[in-house]
């Protein structure tokens, strides 16, 4: 096999980081986190392909996705609570704690 997915994985990961750094909305932050997550999931799958143990890695990937779902659920709950307090989703309103 001549293709290598790793550069794509890193690009996706970098994109996720870029999103996290620059987008000032909590929802877009979630998308950034998801991009990171998808990049790693892809890396896991690709590792299985390289090592020729696709079944193992795919089960791992499934587990990872379900864990991410839990994290997202908690995240959204917190965002909901945040919105209730601030009536906004802007990270600029999330600067009470500092110093």
């Amino acid at each position: 096999m001549n293709i290598n997915l790793l550069p794509f994985v890193f690009a996706l990961f970098g994109l996720g980081l870029f999103c996290l750094l620059t987008r000032r909305s909590l929802v877009k932050l979630l998308i950034g986190l998801e991009l990171l997550g998808k990049a790693t999931t892809l890396a896991i799958i690709w590792a299985g392909v390289v090592q020729k143990t696709p079944a193992t890695t795919q089960s791992i990937a499934l587990l990872v996705i379900s864990i991410e779902a839990v994290v997202v659920a908690v995240y959204l709950a917190l965002v909901y609570a945040f919105h209730r307090h601030n009536q906004s989703l802007d990270t600029d309103d999330m600067r009470r704690l500092k110093g």
Binding site: V9, L36, A43, W46, G48, V50, Q51
Partner: peptide
């Protein structure tokens, strides 16, 4: 966590 997981994937690879 994402970074750790990426690392794990690379180790596996």
């Amino acid at each position: 966590s994402a970074m750790v997981l990426l690392g794990i994937a690379l180790v596996y690879q």
